[in-house]
């Protein structure tokens, strides 16, 4: 009884520490005064200036374009990479997975500087260099989302399709791809959030004149924190939250259905 009660308190404390700062941030974005300690009333003013600012809206557009483009490109490349890794023998697969994991674990600042050094030699820093950098760090996330789906897939279904007269491509598109779709979508949305989240790598590869939301916020904050930034951060948080929920629904629902169906059969 006490253990149960203590457990609940513990969870409560963890939740407070995790989410209280974000809650405060969101609250402040609606605070009429610029003060960080006084609540003087509710206002949408910061949101109005936020959406009225052309610099912010431009950065928002850049962020969105980067996120979608880099996620889409990484999904395609990651899909082929996952298929390649899946069909490798055990030893080759281990080596490939090791190299896949390096960019995930590597410090962002190292990746950022390395990519910058690489890019300045070949192309002007700007939107395209950020895009390339984002595609690069997104690919491993996509691979890691698709591989488990491949491994649990019944390869006999593919063979059955071939047996019934399907070419390799047709069998892949009709039989494999629908099964992989939840993994591909999960990878895509994971990549979108990673791209939207990223500050360090973007900062090093962006060059002058181009800003994503995160680099813009950083620049603004150096001049002093304006309440518009609270509003902007809240909007970002909300966006990522929506995507996360979407991913959960997309990848979770199919498996749940499968489990309940299996239960029905008994």
């Amino acid at each position: 009884m006490i253990a149960k009660w203590l457990g609940k308190v513990y969870i409560g404390i963890v939740m407070v520490f995790l989410y209280a700062p974000i809650a405060v941030l969101i609250a402040l974005s609606f605070n009429a005064s610029k003060s960080r300690v006084l609540w003087t009333g509710f206002t949408f003013r910061w949101y109005r200036t936020l959406f009225g600012s052309s610099a912010i809206m431009k950065a928002f557009g850049t962020t969105l374009a980067l996120a979608l483009l880099s996620a889409a490109t990484a999904s395609l490349i990651g899909l082929f990479a996952a298929l390649g890794i899946y069909s490798m023998r055990k030893s080759g697969r281990r080596v490939m997975l090791f190299f896949t994991n390096i960019p995930l674990l590597n410090a962002d600042i190292v990746t950022g500087i390395a990519l910058m050094l690489w890019f300045v030699r070949f192309l002007p820093l700007g939107f395209s260099s950020i895009l390339l950098a984002h595609v690069t760090f997104n690919i491993p996330y996509v691979i890691l989302c698709i591989l488990p789906k491949l491994e649990t897939m019944d390869i006999r279904q593919f063979e059955a399709a071939r047996d019934l007269g399907a070419t390799t491509l047709y069998a892949f598109l009709r039989i494999m791809l629908p099964g992989l779709m939840p993994g591909i979508l999960a990878g895509f949305f994971m990549a979108v959030t990673m791209s939207m989240d990223d500050f360090v790598i973007t900062y090093f590869t962006k060059g002058p004149g181009v800003n994503t939301l995160s680099t813009l916020i950083y620049g603004e904050i150096r001049k002093g924190i304006k309440p518009e930034m609270y509003a902007l951060s809240s909007v970002l948080f909300l966006l990522v939250l929506i995507i996360l929920i979407a991913v959960n629904i997309l990848t979770g629902s199919k498996e749940d259905k499968y489990i309940t169906k299996n239960k029905e059969i008994g």
């Binding site: 006999r156 063979e159 071939r162 070419t167």
Partner: peptide, 18 residues
């Protein structure tokens, strides 16, 4: 290749397209 052979297979675990 299998798709051009005049025979069909019934697989061990059925391999129906789920």
């Amino acid at each position: 290749p299998p798709n051009r052979r005049q025979l069909n297979t019934v697989f061990q675990k059925y391999a129906l397209f789920t």
